[in-house]
Amino acid sequence: MTEQTEKAVPAAEAPLPRGEEPAAEGHRIAPLRGELSNTAAFFWGFTCIAGVLAVWFVITAGPPGEAEKRMVSPTTLPSVAETFQAIPRVFGERKLVTNTLVTLKRVCLGFGLSCIVGVPLGILAACLPALRAFLAPLMVFGRNIPVAALIPLTFFFFGIGEFQKVMFLFIASVAFVLSDTAAAVLDVPQRYVDTALTLGASRWQIITKVLGPLAAPSIFNSLRLLFGLAFGYVMLAELVKFGSASGGLGDLINMSQRRGEREPILLVLVIIPMVAWAIDRALWWLQSDLFPYRYGGAGLIPRFCGWLLHGRRTEFRP
């Protein structure tokens, strides 16, 4: 007995710490789904950017004037320095800022139209099963339509002006807006509807006072993500053009391609995601501020609107 225990104790003790150590270590360095400190997050992000730039730098490096000695020829990929030297040209001659604004205006119009049509219709579709079934084929069709094939079609229908681009975006995105909105409303737990019913709410009041507002944070979140999608679509529409220059980022890329310039295209590729990211962050801030109870924002806009609407009569929270 004693012998056995004496043997068993070290035998049992020895592997335990050894077995636990790597687990504990792993827990510290890479906690599963855990939070990372800002510094660490910045470090890893920076490492990624630096890594990409380094690879780019190495494969395009070579003595000046001897382009054929580079690993990748400059006609395929210009060097880092060459690309960044093109910055003034892209901002000046190619009017990057103006073209970005032209593109943004188109996204806002087309996607805005999608929202104006898709959100109310989506809420109604979620509430009325017959309408939902009626719209179901359109949603399936609209979500799976080959977007590129839509472009020539919209030229036939809507001409070659601004209207065509707006309508293209509308057709390409409205089905997503509609079905995401309907899904958000259907996701609101039934107990809220039951509660409202026992408090005497009518069917219409349940839609406008309960389902709509409770689904609003999810709807806004979907719209924010879909905005990014629309931003990509519109450039596709701008790439295809008839006749004169139509402006926009797609057009800028098109023009550079015809002139055989790679640097502006690369720069646009770098700048566009940054613009898209900035817009996304701005929308996220708006979202968390509009729905503080869901995303923990400060609620400045709702409070400001409340103050505008009701003035001194509202009580302020400290």
Partner: peptide, 19 residues
């Protein structure tokens, strides 16, 4: 059907989060 003459309190919290 339902009506406000019969009030109900549920176990699950059903406060309207947006209000």
């Amino acid at each position: 059907g339902p009506g406000s003459d019969r009030g109900m309190v549920f176990q699950d919290y059903t406060s309207f989060d947006n209000r």
